[in-house]
Design a protein around this nucleic acid. Structure first.
Length: 644
RNA sequence: GCUGGCGUAGCUCAGUGGUAGAGCAGCGCACUCGUAAUGCGCAGGUCGAGGGUUCGAGUCCCUCCGCCAGCUCCA
């Protein structure tokens, strides 16, 4: 007796296969079902049912069905690779968001030009329509079998399995250790594409062999595959490195050095706007902004513990006179020294010290990426010195500030991550268990109070304490850490910080490290991709461009551009000797919010003919009214282009 | 840092051992123009750097540098 999702029941013979049940229910299900959920567990269509229970048949249109489709596709890819490169050792081949990969230890080195041949072989395997068969065998027997087959990675996986048995799946001559489930046969694959090839360490460990990873994706239909490939193409167009070049926002010069970006005037405008925005907001929130130097004596970092725990990410010291100086990788010690300039009373706390602090971190060359991963960066940093009782309130204030800023920037999709130490890693994290537990408890309390969901990342903490990260979803679909809040009992201890309490006795303050807008570099990269270069008015490097129709209109345009500058607006004039349609085209490509056509009519009436980015002619307006409306758009940081 | 790929004019790219080319951008001239590319002309490259093979190298080989994808790491 089986219960179906709609509540109906069917009775079948004990030991019937899932496929036969599907056939009993409807011919459509028999045709389209690819996998089933039996008592909460995903099973193959060939699975035999020995007990009563719930059964849900799943087609390719379900998330589970799609996942199984991709999983089977990765097996077909592995089979094709085995045929083309005999002697290949198989590692793992999981599905991932939007696709799958398989890691191979190949007897030869291959590049992307090998992919079409593998795809062609996959097509052949699909045509052969090989039945996919599951077998459950004792672990010992499988170890022996995979050892004989020359598959050491599979043997290694088997040795870590604790169950007495494990399952294998075979299709034709190909056999793979796999939990399943899978499609009934290779002929079920409809649309797949191999996307890229890259190296990946076995088990993600850089001390172990480098394998060849092939990425691909699969969909139930050609059409869905085409759409996905098109979406990938669109995402590539929003790449901040591409737009940074096209829109002249920033540049990386080989002569200057890797990861050391140059902010071009337009990119610098975005940055300056962001900097003014966040500094103003922080001043309103009770922060005190300071300036400190990016260079300091190495002793400062020995006291802070950076030297012991963070040295791999620091530029080596330079000897000058009798001292050794380093480029700072973080700003905290400087802010601590500001705190230490005078004794503090509990009445002064919390003391919120903020800075747009220039830092340098030595990043391995392979990780550098445009503006989002650099070696020289300016962090929107602050350190809050407070009493233990104030921690929770201060923590919540920071989270609220983050939420406020995300609203202004147009971030909608973000998640909280509680990053904890890995207790086994004594190298990276300071070894003071009680301190870690206390800080973690406080953060969890604050999170509970806010009632927000969060995930946990063991091993992701800073060396001196746990942290709450806020990760924002990027256009590429990945989450990037933008903001971070950290509770720190360690550095106040190291530096012997004190405040005088109401009892007239010295006490140890607690520090909260926090970054809201991240580094200017990463935030700008993120915003470029979020908006695809089409910035809202308040951030746009050029908010509008005046387009004189003939050169007798240039003077009028220039005068208004100057007027706008005096109002703090950013208008340019396209003075080139070109036709209007050409100027419009170029302004659209530059993604300038407003195109402002001026000809005889406009000059006579002190007007402007407006065209919004991506739209057609939007009618005429008095120039003065337009500037006032533009200013409102910028002041209110509105994300649309409605002039009112 | 590791594996693989790539590096030709400001940009996008062609050039499969015989003395470097196109489009766009730039500059000049003409046109004075009403909502996504006006026409004509000119100029622009020690082919990432260094070494080697060859009568001859953008092209083949080696080393280095940089970029891209991914791994590891991360604001």
């Amino acid at each position: 007796m089986l219960t179906l999702p709609d509540g109906a029941t069917v009775s079948v013979e004990v030991g019937s296969t899932v496929a036969s049940v599907a056939a009993r229910i409807s011919p459509r299900l028999a045709r389209e079902a690819v996998v089933a959920r039996y008592n909460g567990k995903l099973v193959d269509l060939g699975y035999r049912l020995w007990e009563d229970g719930s059964l849900e048949l799943l087609t390719l249109d379900t998330p589970e069905g799609l996942d199984v489709l991709r999983h089977t596709t990765t097996h077909v890819m592995a089979q094709a690779v085995m045929r083309l490169y005999p002697g290949t050792k198989l590692a793992i081949g999981p599905t991932i968001e939007d696709g799958f990969y398989y890691d191979f230890d190949l007897p030869v080195s291959i590049g992307p030009d090998a992919l079409p041949a593998i795809e062609a072989e996959m097509e052949r395997i699909v045509k052969e329509n090989l039945p996919i068969i599951r077998e459950e065998l004792p672990r010992e027997q499988l170890v022996e079998r995979f050892t004989k087959a020359g598959q050491p990675y599979k043997v290694e996986i088997l040795q870590e399995i604790t169950d007495p048995t494990a399952s294998i799946y075979s299709q034709g001559e190909f056999v793979d250790l796999c939990r399943g489930p899978h499609l009934p046969s290779t002929g079920h694959l409809k649309a797949f594409k191999l996307l890229s090839i890259a190296g990946a360490y076995w088990r993600g460990d850089e001390r172990r062999p480098m394998l060849t990873r092939i990425y691909g994706t699969a969909f139930p239909s050609r059409k869905q595959l085409e759409e996905h490939l098109k979406a990938l193409e669109e995402a590539r167009k929003r790449d901040h490195r591409r737009l940074g070049k096209d829109l002249e926002l920033f540049a990386i010069s080989e002569e200057v050095g890797q990861g050391l970006p140059l902010w071009l005037p337009k990119g610098a405008t975005i940055r300056r706007t962001l900097e003014r925005y966040i500094v103003d907001l922080e001043l309103k929130e009770g922060y005190q902004h300071v300036y400190t130097t990016p260079l300091a004596r190495v002793e400062l970092y020995k006291i802070s513990g950076h030297w012991d725990h963070y040295r791999d990410n620091m530029y080596p010291p330079m000897k000058v006179d009798d001292e050794e100086l380093v480029l700072r990788p973080m700003n905290c010690p400087h802010h601590i020294m500001i705190y230490k300039q005078k004794p503090h009373s509990y009445r002064e706390l919390p003391l919120r010290i903020a800075e747009l602090g220039l830092m340098h971190r030595y990043e391995r060359s392979g990780v550098l990426t445009g503006l989002s991963r650099v070696r020289s960066m300016v962090l929107n940093d602050a350190h809050i010195f407070c009493t233990p009782e104030q921690i929770k309130d201060e923590f919540l204030r920071v989270v609220r500030l983050i939420q406020r800023v995300y609203r202004d920037l147009g971030f909608k999709d973000y998640v909280y991550t509680l990053s904890l130490r890995d207790p086994a890693d004594k190298e990276k994290f300071v070894d003071l268990p009680e301190m870690w537990d206390k800080a973690e408890r406080l953060i969890r309390q604050a999170l509970d109070e806010m009632g927000v969901d969060f995930r946990e990342d063991v091993g992701g903490a800073a060396f001196y304490g746990p942290k709450l990260d806020v990760d924002v979803k990027s256009v590429a679909g990945k989450y990037e850490t933008i903001s971070t809040v950290q509770v720190d009992f360690y550095l106040p201890e190291r530096f012997g910080l004190e405040y005088i309490g109401p009892d007239n006795q010295p006490h140890r303050p607690v520090m909260i490290h926090r970054g809201v807008v991240s580094t200017m570099e990463r935030m700008t990269a993120f915003l470029i991709e979020l908006y695809g270069g089409a910035f809202p008015v308040w951030l746009a490097p050029v908010q509008g461009i005046l387009l004189p129709i003939a050169d007798r209109h240039v003077e009028y345009a220039r005068a208004w551009a100057q007027e706008a500058r005096e109002l703090g607006l950013r208008l340019e004039v396209d003075e080139r000797d070109e036709k209007l349609s050409r100027k419009i085209r170029d302004a659209e490509l530059q993604k300038i919010p407003f195109m402002l056509v001026v000809g005889d009519r406009e000059v006579a009436e002190e007007e402007v003919a407006i065209r919004r980015r991506g739209e057609g002619d939007a009618g005429r307006m008095k120039m003065k009214e337009f500037l006032a409306a533009l200013q409102r758009l910028a002041d209110e940081r509105r994300l649309d282009l409605e002039l009112r």
